[in-house]
């Protein structure tokens, strides 16, 4: 099959590699680039555990082809760990034991980061809207929402 050369910024570093046209971004990140925080949960955009930031906006990397990332800026939780809002969120998530199994955490944290970077005074409804695409089966969401609210208050 024809290979495509693509280049993009991954967590601030430039990467270039060859991919097949049918390669999915999530598989390339996980399989070829060793980036493991985005997870495969459903392979059809339902669960949000594969969430990454593409040019500052959250996308489902299981629904994006790798070739679409050509020239883009991709940030996963590994890279977002140094962002101001991500760190503030993480501190409250930790204090409030907001996650249980942790599998959905990278996706939730990126969705919440995107929200707070664009709106530092979200309402509870805004918060719920922002993470409504991230499924969590353990927590009942309450501690996650509370932690985001607390992060906003403590800014």
């Amino acid at each position: 099959m024809k290979q495509h050369n693509i280049q993009f910024w991954l967590n601030g570093e430039k990467v270039s590699l060859q991919v097949e046209p049918s390669d999915v971004l999530l598989d390339v990140l996980r399989g070829k680039l060793g980036i493991k925080s985005p997870k495969a949960g459903c392979d059809r955009g339902d669960c949000g555990t594969c969430t990454v930031l593409m040019n500052g906006k959250t996308i489902r990397s299981c629904l994006a082809l790798a070739v679409e990332a050509d020239g883009a800026e991709i940030v996963t939780l590994e890279g977002a760990n140094s962002r101001k809002w991500t760190q503030r969120l993480q501190k409250t998530f930790h204090e409030k034991n907001a996650f249980q199994c942790g599998f959905c955490a990278p996706g939730v944290i990126l969705s919440a980061t995107e929200l707070l970077e664009n709106n530092s005074r979200p309402t509870t409804h805004d918060i719920k809207e922002a993470i409504a695409g991230n499924l969590c089966r353990c927590t009942g969401y309450e501690p996650i929402v509370e932690a985001i609210e607390e992060t906003v208050k403590g800014k």
């Binding site: 590994e78 930790h94 955490a105």
Partner: peptide
């Protein structure tokens, strides 16, 4: 949780 940070950092 003692596994908190590991999970929250991805």
């Amino acid at each position: 949780r003692i596994d908190g940070w590991e999970k929250i950092k991805g």
